[in-house]
Design a protein around this nucleic acid. Structure first.
Length: 197
DNA sequence: ATATCGATTATCT
DNA sequence: GATAATCGATATG
């Protein structure tokens, strides 16, 4: 554990999702498993989802049971289930009472690669780059690799070093960040709210 | 490498 | 009853 490494505080997330999505690139997602194993990955792709002014956002039509976390305090996990089989992870943004979040779309795997492969049910006998990349490239893939589910993780505090799902800053700075339109949405497709390294 | 398609169910209209 | 912030398989170039 690097001594420069620290959990990112709640204030970081109490901002506009567009700002947070960009700022999260290069940060670490850490997962502590009940077994004691630790998984980690560096964030390389995110998307921002806003509130009432963003038709593609789950929060667009107001608060429901499903999206309640988005209206709560910043820095908490919003995990939703979609397409009948996939989970996706977001972190809540904006001050409490206002909706917004950042979707995690891809990570560069760091620690715990063999466990990620097991969680993904992927064989790594040939450690091809494509095979390794497929562990955590995609919002539902990274959730499966990190064993993130709605029942276990929705609403979880992600700013406490003691949490088993934490965001950390280790001082790494990304080189070039690019912006583009978001993927897989039909409603507000033209907003440049996707960020990647 | 790119395109198309089926899977499978919680959530909302 | 329709849709979905996706993925993996299959087909084709």
């Amino acid at each position: 554990m690097n001594e420069e490494q620290h959990a990112i505080g709640r204030e970081f997330f109490a901002r506009h999702p567009r700002v947070v999505a960009r700022a999260l690139l290069g940060k670490l997602l850490i997962r502590r498993l009940p077994s004691g194993h630790v998984l980690s990955g560096r964030i390389v792709e995110t998307e921002a989802y806003l509130g009432a002014d963003d038709a593609a956002a789950h929060a667009a039509a107001g608060k429901t049971q499903r999206n309640a976390v988005l209206f709560g305090p910043p820095g908490h996990a919003y995990v939703y289930f979609t397409y009948g089989m996939h989970y996706c992870l977001n972190v809540s943004c904006e001050p409490e009472g206002r909706a917004g979040c950042v979707l995690f779309r891809a990570l560069d795997r760091l620690a715990g690669i063999d466990i990620m492969a097991k969680n993904r049910k992927i064989t790594l006998e040939s450690r091809s780059t494509a095979r390794l990349r497929s562990l955590t490239s995609g919002p539902a893939r990274l959730c499966q690799a990190f064993a993130i589910t709605r029942t276990n993780d929705n609403g979880k505090e992600m700013t406490s070093p003691a949490s088993d799902l934490v965001l950390m800053d280790d001082g790494y700075r990304t080189k070039k960040i690019r912006a583009a339109t978001r993927i897989g949405i039909t409603k507000s497709p033209d907003l440049p709210l996707r960020f990647y390294v």
